[in-house]
Design a protein around this nucleic acid. Structure first.
Lengths: 341, 341
DNA sequence: TTGAAAGCGCTAACAG
DNA sequence: CTGTTAGCGCTTTCAA
């Protein structure tokens, strides 16, 4: 069943039927209903490719599937992708993934040349602006998950990563902690740099000198959480509080604490950023983990909406979101142990 | 630059240029070369949507992105998807992912109705034939990663999962082990059932009665590997050998062994199936892990090729692959400890 | 070996 | 409010 035969059945022109179906205003309510009903009974589905050809739009969002070894296992990326994919379906957009064995920029170049996608999503931004510049040069619409220095010039969604470590650090300092360590994400990622600065500034604001021994960074895996915590908690002068970049990492630190017989919440306080990945539920941990919370899946969903608006012509300035995670206080945080004061 | 203007530049008809570019035989070598060169210098790219409309084919492969909580973190699925995506790019196919918050069958129904994909890939098959029947009813081409009882009727790629546990079990039995436990994958997945049968038969063939206490099944995570191993290795009558469904799981069993002070390779022998996921390298473990090996990424790549052939009209009977993993012997396996004979 | 012409199924000016 | 008329850019008979 195509437009033409549907129109014939109704005794209307293709145009009218098309407009009725696409919700244009200049169609009488009567015919609009008649058309809608007929479309349903005949099970009419517009041919996507014909529409794409006619409009020049594909309603497809592209995303590069990272081939970088460390990324593969990263539940955070998958969580984001899930939200994006869910919401995109609801909005009748499709998601196309692509990976190349070589450079990620090749993927964008291919997207642009082929013209199969209307817009691409950029994830995992680092300090280099290479991919962003390329997309701007190619004139390919894009939205960034994260930010770089030139974020004024494009649409993005990000969380206040500075605050992600600054807020809990401030809180811990006020509680009397002054030996605060951080287990950060990959050091060349912008979010990790922001978090580092948040931590550093919080200390400096209270006149505490940041201790470089208290800084670790790497992929946010359980394993790294464990390894980093084992190192840091066995330092001569061990910290009384730990800031983790993810709950997955925090699970590793819990394991380290248990192995070392260090009581969480009294002997050491732990705070993590919570992306709300399903298999790492902060509230179910023992003791329940204090977090700054901002679900990655929500970010994925939001970016799908932003993509739609971008393609509808909304101004870039209106498509720059900065979310502020909420601080959720739980039992993994307590006053610093006496011995350390 | 489109076909028309390119043809004008060359002083040829669109038809000839199109045929030259698509490698039809009835074009003189001279013009063929001339066209190829012009296309390159002008940077001509055929419009995908126009082609799709004209041919009725999209060259897009669809795959349902699992929303099931346990799947999210599963590095095995991602590894497979990576191979698929890589090879698809090379073959000039695109990969579309879709997820629904409700049922996975909805995704397939949407794919079929919309007509955006030529073929879908089915992963993680369980005993139910529901998805398969739906796709057959919808007349939507598909290839299965795995097999079900009715696998004669469709195209698939699978490994000999029966052998994955049967072979190493036989080997261990021949070495004198008779207390062999299995840490299996999710119990309703077909591959897990096949592996279970392989283990069971190997024992029975040697006159050993399978011990139900020696069977554990669940998601193939490090955590489960650890938990299951902790349980099984603290049994009154503990096994002398462990068969794991994945290297990720085996990492958990290694951790359990270390914690319990059990020497791997002498006090307990461990074998796992190796999908070759990047962050779980069996050869780098201590001691190096004995495995049955069959890279998931290769399966993904192969399925992309199969999809192409399917769409080119190759008969289903020619598109049924069964791979036999190789057994790689390493230090994690040794003779059973004396005390147990 | 090449070209003319007719679609593929939809959208969108433009008229009425 | 509805219809007429061109396309969108490619493939593919059919004729020459």
């Amino acid at each position: 069943m195509n437009l033409k035969t549907l129109a014939n059945h109704l005794g209307l022109s293709q145009t009218t039927v098309s407009r009725a179906l696409n919700g244009y205003s200049d169609v009488s309510l009567a015919t609009r209903n008649r058309v809608a009903e007929a479309a349903k009974t005949y099970g009419y589905r517009p041919n996507v490719n014909a529409r794409r050809l006619a409009t020049g739009r594909s309603s497809v969002i592209g995303i590069a599937f990272p081939t970088d070894m460390n990324m593969f296992l990263d539940p955070h990326f998958i969580e984001f992708l899930t939200g994006l994919s869910e919401k995109a379906s609801e909005l009748d957009y499709d998601i196309m993934i692509s990976s190349s064995q070589s450079e990620e920029v090749d993927v964008y170049r291919r997207f642009a040349e082929k013209g199969t996608v209307d817009l691409v999503i950029l994830s995992n931004v680092d300090l280099s602006e290479e991919r962003i510049r390329l997309l701007q040069d190619l004139n390919m619409p894009f939205i960034v998950h994260g930010r770089t220095a030139t974020c004024d010039s494009y649409s993005y969604i990000d969380i206040d990563n500075y605050g992600v470590f600054h807020e809990p650090a401030k809180m811990l300092l006020e509680m009397g902690h002054d030996k605060i360590a951080i287990l950060n994400g990959h050091p060349n990622r912008v979010y990790a740099i922001d978090r580092f600065n948040g931590w550093q500034d919080a200390l400096k604001e209270r006149g505490v000198t940041p201790n470089p021994d208290y800084v670790r960074a790497g992929a946010m895996s359980e394993e790294n959480g464990y390894t980093f915590a084992m190192e840091i908690l066995q330092l001569e002068d061990r910290p009384t509080a730990l800031l983790c970049s993810s709950v997955v990492m925090a699970k590793g630190t819990y394991r380290a604490c248990n192995e070392l017989g260090i009581k969480i919440g009294s002997e050491v306080s732990i705070v993590a950023h919570d992306d709300n990945v399903p298999l790492a539920q902060a509230a179910d941990m023992d003791p329940p983990l204090t977090v700054t919370r901002s679900p990655l899946r929500d970010a994925g969903r939001e970016i799908a909406i932003m993509a739609m608006n971008y393609l509808k012509g909304t101004d870039i300035k209106e498509l720059q979101c900065l979310w502020h995670p909420e601080l959720i206080f739980r039992k993994s945080v307590g006053a610093p142990p006496r011995s350390s004061t």
